[in-house]
């Protein structure tokens, strides 16, 4: 029975590892490869940490199983090893993990700066926000500036509005301003690996560069009330021309006053 317990503690990490290895094949992994430039960097860091962590996991769990196995197979009449520890070992297992942890930390800094530090944003993103995304219980309100103008902090007369659909150019670094009208929300685009809280009272700039045209999920990642799960929206990445066509269409629809639809006959009668 003693050996059973030692094997038990060896067995479950093997199952855990197997599940992790099998996961990508069974679609229990990332929803898709990263679809943004920053996403590639984030995934790269994830896999770097994953390798370090997996090796540590295997090493420590194997060691735990091994010391249990030794205890299980030990002659019951022999005495336990009387030892208060080893200064040398303590130093080794303090310094080695310390270096590894500092190393992991240092590898993160550049990517973190790329994602968050305003002065490090790509020039094209810095030119100005494409749109303002305002979260609200339980939807995303998008405000674009009138085509040909800059986005202002306060709403302007010519601004264009849409709900739950954000059109951005593909393969261009794009900045949006994130805010909330009521409680705290979070802008989460899983396939782009983008997440940023929308905090009441703050306007938070956020940038990403979607690599290929397509539709990407946008959801809320910060509890915002009973309908938190319902804040379903999409980000549509299109060619720059496609986006400007969309905005023109949006402008036409928004300025639609019904008059232009008037029967052609009346207009000709005026003439």
């Amino acid at each position: 029975m003693k050996k059973f317990w030692a094997l038990f503690f060896w067995f479950w990490p093997i199952v855990a590892l197997w599940v992790c290895f099998a996961a990508p094949g069974r679609n229990w992994w990332f929803p898709s490869p990263p679809k943004s430039t920053l996403g590639h960097q984030i995934d790269g860091l994830f896999y770097l940490i994953l390798i370090i962590v997996a090796l540590t996991f295997v090493g420590t769990e194997a060691a735990l199983g091994y010391v249990m196995w030794r205890g299980a197979t030990k002659d019951a009449s022999s005495k336990a090893w009387f030892s208060h520890g080893s200064h040398k070992l303590e130093i080794i297992w303090t310094i080695v993990p310390a270096f590894v942890l500092v190393f992991i930390s240092l590898t993160q800094l550049d990517v973190l700066a790329d994602i968050r530090v305003l002065s490090k944003f790509p020039d094209e993103a810095k030119k100005g926000a494409l749109a303002e995304v305002t979260a609200r219980q339980f939807e995303w309100r998008i405000r674009y500036p009138k085509p040909g103008t800059m986005l202002m902090t306060d709403p302007q007369p010519g601004d264009l509005y849409f709900v739950n659909e954000l059109h951005v150019p593909a393969a261009v670094p794009t900045m949006v301003n994130l805010r909330t009208q009521d409680v705290q929300h979070a802008f989460f685009a899983p396939k782009l690996r983008v997440k940023q809280d929308a905090v009441p009272g703050l306007v938070i700039p956020l940038w990403f560069e979607i690599e290929e045209a397509g539709e990407y999920e946008l959801l809320c990642a910060e509890l915002c009330g009973w309908g938190h799960y319902k804040m379903k929206a999409r980000i549509v990445a299109d060619s720059p021309k496609g986006v400007s066509d969309y905005l023109t269409r949006l402008e036409a629809e928004q300025n639609e006053d019904g008059v232009a639809e008037a029967p052609a006959g009346e207009e000709s009668a005026e003439e």
Partner: peptide, 12 residues
């Protein structure tokens, strides 16, 4: 590491 060291060579 110290917990694993504690189990090491004990009469479990």
């Amino acid at each position: 590491f110290n917990w694993i060291g504690t189990i090491w060579d004990g009469n479990i």
